[in-house]
């Protein structure tokens, strides 16, 4: 196997009483696209910032392209093989689209002909060629997002960190951004992308990392995660007209007022029995929904339904 582009071993980072990274370890291969999932406060941004060299780790080891990354981004010079796309629209709003690309390209070491070439590429890639002379502050939300990504990858890094790159963008804009990221990945870049859009990463990422309390609580491809955590079960959602008190046959199901939720191993056999029991109890069934296990099911199963903030 080729040398991983990123290897993190037992990373720890604490902010006061909060342990943002609690001994986290991971490895990322070249050209791999990883979705970084987790509830708010799980440690995703801390992990991204640590990889980008914006935060020193309290303990543990972080290697980029086979070298220790302790000094990167901390005054010791940047790593031009790394691209970072922050969650915010990190652009100069009074500069034009082209000027934003030029200044960030220069910061990443691009000069003259290379810079010109990459700016032209980025304008085409983002679909913003017609807006090259428009001030970034005057672009639409989706255009700003695309430019935001382009400024982070203009120097064609081998590892790109994307912190929620599609947040606040309409479906068409999101689609364009996913296509852009797919192109990047096809060209060989490894991507780490934090997001809450589970349905999108489910179909695009090679691997998911689910973080909670500063640790990776599950990792793998979607099917693998589903099999590991839900065992390939379907999930039943049942809505009745009156509060449920529980099912004698399925004490493992979750009851929440008039609603019931639980996993079914064999829908054809188990569902009729459950419906019959509810009917016998004198309750009227208002709705039945059986869903195939998804990444969201896995996520909810692993991280729970309680609000974290």
């Amino acid at each position: 196997m080729a040398e991983p582009v990123l290897r993190i071993t037992s990373a720890r980072k604490r902010f006061g009483a909060v342990e943002a990274l609690a001994g986290l370890s991971l490895s990322l291969g070249a050209g791999e696209w990883v979705g970084l999932l987790g509830p708010n406060g799980a440690g995703k941004s801390t992990l991204m910032h640590a990889i980008a060299g914006l935060l020193p780790l309290d303990a543990g080891r972080l290697e980029l392209f086979g070298h220790s990354a302790d000094r990167i981004g901390s005054g010791g010079g940047g790593n031009d093989r790394l691209g970072f796309v922050p969650q915010e629209i990190a652009l100069y709003p009074l500069l034009t689209t082209e000027q934003n690309l030029q200044v960030f390209g220069r910061l990443h070491g691009l000069r003259r002909s290379d810079l010109e070439q990459q700016v032209t590429w980025a304008l085409q890639w983002t679909g913003l060629a017609g807006r090259a002379r428009t001030c970034a502050g005057e672009l639409s939300g989706g255009m700003k997002r695309r430019l935001n990504i382009a400024c982070g990858v203009l120097h064609r890094p081998q590892l790109v960190l994307l912190d929620e790159p599609t947040v606040g963008v309409d479906p068409q804009g999101r689609q364009r951004i996913w296509e852009m990221l797919t192109e990047l990945r096809q060209e060989g870049a490894a991507l780490i992308q934090s997001t809450h859009e589970l349905d999108q990463v489910e179909t695009r990422c090679d691997r998911m990392l689910i973080l909670d309390h500063g640790q990776i609580i599950a990792a793998g491809a979607v099917d693998e995660l589903i099999a590991k955590t839900l065992g390939g079960q379907a999930v039943l959602h049942l809505q009745c007209d009156q509060p449920l008190r529980g099912l004698l046959s399925r004490p493992d199901f979750e009851i929440d007022g008039n609603s019931l939720r639980g996993a079914l191993h064999d829908v054809a056999i188990e569902l009729p029995a459950i419906l019959a029991e509810v009917h016998t109890a004198g309750l009227e069934i208002l709705g039945v929904h059986v869903e195939r296990p998804s990444l969201e099911s896995v996520f909810t199963h692993l991280t729970g339904r309680e609000l974290r903030e």
């Binding site: 990167i72 981004g73 010079g77 790394l82 970072f84 922050p86 990190a90 960030f104 990443h108």
Partner: peptide, 10 residues
């Protein structure tokens, strides 16, 4: 977020 971007660029 430009500051993060600048710092990440070295």
């Amino acid at each position: 977020g430009v500051l993060e971007r600048l710092l990440a660029a070295g």
